[in-house]
Amino acid sequence: MKPDAHSNGSEQQLFKQLFDQYYEAIRNFLFYKSGDLTLSEDLTQEAFLILWKKRSNINPDKAKSYLYTIANNLFLNEIKHQKVVFKFQQQPVSNTFKETPQFQMEEEEFKDRLMNAINDLPEKNRVVFLMNRIEKLTYKEIADRLDLSVKAVEKRMHKALIELRKLSYKI
């Protein structure tokens, strides 16, 4: 009885650590896919719950990439998801003194065009690009999490960037 209760306690602690480390990452990953924050939060809950249920069959080293796999599967099962419409929160840029109203307007326009361009990227490229740009993950880290080669990550990155330039500058 007693040792059992103890191992359960540390098991939960380990799980909590994993949760603290990857909760945002998984939610953002789902957000990059779906553009729907509420859906992303709900699916992240499901993903962690599945991991918890299956904890006895999972090698702790594999838990991270397994989480991404579960999240991806849950997303694919969510058949009724609509087309992505991203709404990021925008942080004000701090170079205020040189901003004329004209400049500000152009900036706003460009932001909108870029957001639409991100919208229109192929999902795989978008996810990798945003994982790198917003979460500052290295190619190696992204490759580990998504079970890809570093080469594949590089390819998605430059494809995304070239595509974004075309779309947002209408080249």
């Binding site: 603290d20 909760y23 990021f88 942080q91 917003i134």
Partner: peptide
């Protein structure tokens, strides 16, 4: 390219529920 990256860097995700709340639920 540089402008695309700089502008992307100003985007962030406006979370509605914190991690702590998510953990409470979970």
């Amino acid at each position: 390219y540089k402008k695309i990256l700089e502008t992307t860097a100003t985007f962030s995700i406006s979370e509605t529920n914190s991690r702590a709340e998510a953990w409470t639920r979970l």
